[in-house]
Write a protein that binds this DNA or RNA. Sequence first.
DNA 1: ATTACTGCAAAGCATTTGCAGACTG
DNA 2: CAGTCTGCAAATGCTTTGCAGTAAT
Lengths: 138, 138
Amino acid sequence: MIHENLESWPAGIIKTKHRERMLFVLKNAAKPLSAMEIWAEIKKNNPPSSLSTVYRSLEQFIKKGVITKLTIMNHELAVYELTRSQHKHYAVCWGCQKMFPMEYCPVEQSLPEMIGDGFQVKGHNLEIYGYCRECSQQ
Amino acid sequence: MIHENLESWPAGIIKTKHRERMLFVLKNAAKPLSAMEIWAEIKKNNPPSSLSTVYRSLEQFIKKGVITKLTIMNHELAVYELTRSQHKHYAVCWGCQKMFPMEYCPVEQSLPEMIGDGFQVKGHNLEIYGYCRECSQQ
DNA sequence: ATTACTGCAAAGCATTTGCAGACTG
DNA sequence: CAGTCTGCAAATGCTTTGCAGTAAT
């Protein structure tokens, strides 16, 4: 078991065991997690716990900007990740559904020129689709 | 009422009144439509009709590549649009939820260099978020 | 003490599925 | 005629909500 304390706690959110665990789990996740995946992790250390609590806490974190909710094309579940100062995009495999983080963001530098009509840009979401190395070989 | 015949009918899909109407509706839509919005349009001309038929036909069209399903961040509904040779992206307003089509795609030219690890790119999805002119003035 | 969080169970809602009948080619 | 589509109703599955009890400040 790893030490779970986070350096700082987001303002305006009451600290509980479950929520500490939630942030820890997301912080160490290699990919965005669904509510049920987060719940499964919490249950290991903090039973009892309920899915509805996870959803309610997610809602709080999202409202504070700590967590970002992603809805991936052709996935029915929503997934969640920590809001990072340097955001990531993912390549999603149509074969195995795995998500591969990408470092490069092609949108950043060309955004301003894209938007006319007084649209005030606050952020963006980009997903790449295709087949990962394993799935494309089959 | 406008003449509704489409120039060509997608191969491998049985032609019915409902489905002709579905494509017509999507062809003339200014934005991607949800299944329920499509259903509402169909009902005007072809009652009776049912939502489940719309979903089943959408599935067929998607499988043939005629229609593309989009899942927009922070919208709970999926929306659908005709698959166009020149794809579009949308700016989604956090205020009024309206979707504004954008002509420019910043991803196209820089895609190849982004993907390592043998990931075979088949497509992408990009959404811009923010506030439209009306909503940002409030 | 007051306010907010939690578990449980039930409700909500978009989407899917089963089935019998109707339509397409 | 065979195979597919359709409407209706019921089921599914993720997410939300109500409520009574518990924990946090």
